[in-house]
Design a protein around this nucleic acid. Structure first.
Lengths: 113, 113
DNA sequence: CTCCACTACTACGCAAAGCAGTATACTGGT
DNA sequence: ACCAGTATACTGCTTTGCGTAGTAGTGGAG
């Protein structure tokens, strides 16, 4: 994958995963599949699991283990209150960022006219 | 600045600078000021200059030195053909990415309805 | 029994942003 | 002439997250 995409993803993956979990709990493998459905976001499990661990350690996610009928027990992650708050902050930043970049693309904001 | 923003910026700064240069040549100091006008993008020169060097080394930018009446000579950067091509690729990816993330936010694409 | 899909995890390397420091040219005040 | 301040450019070193590759255990199909 091109370097710029690799770099752009930093932070983005976390953002995506948190947004995904807004729809309810899920486990690593499933999250992985969901992300893979979006071409621009394809990742491997070795990218996803560390993020989940980190988010949990930082108190944004909580885990609940449930047995699976087709493999090892699943670890279901869901947002904590802190996590929900964080997603909102991130979404706000993301929105503003898009506005900012749009400005930048169509000419300098309040510069020459 | 929060970690996630720091991380999110990776790759993004390059993207922004290239987009800025689509409006014509500019030099480091000026580019810096332009970026600073957008709150979500504030950077320091030590972030901008390495990117400019890199982009030049990779053939996306070309440089032309011109004397300044109020300081050391300015190094004007402008897009090469390769650079213009790259901006377009990036913009395409960026657009698709936004679509993808939007999908992800409003529920899984083609999943349950 | 063996292979494969499901599920989870870890170690190491790389690349980019951020902080802090260096360097040079010009301008204005004393 | 000197010094301060601003315009302009650059370079370590650190931090952090993604990517690659490898490990490991369960359950079902052949």
């Amino acid at each position: 994958m091109s370097t710029w995409v690799t770099q752009l993803r930093k932070g983005l993956m976390e953002f995506c995963i948190l947004n995904l979990l807004q729809h309810g709990e899920s486990y690593g493998y499933e999250i992985l599949q969901s992300l893979q459905q979006i071409e621009e976001l394809v990742v491997t499990d070795s990218t996803v699991y560390p993020i989940l661990s980190r988010l949990r350690k930082d108190g944004y996610l909580k885990v609940q283990v449930k047995p699976s009928s087709s493999g090892p027990p699943r670890r279901y992650f869901s947002l904590t209150a802190l996590g929900r708050q964080r997603v909102e902050e991130m979404n706000l930043y993301w929105t503003n960022l898009q506005v900012g970049i749009d400005k930048l693309k169509r000419g300098n904001p309040g510069d020459e006219k």
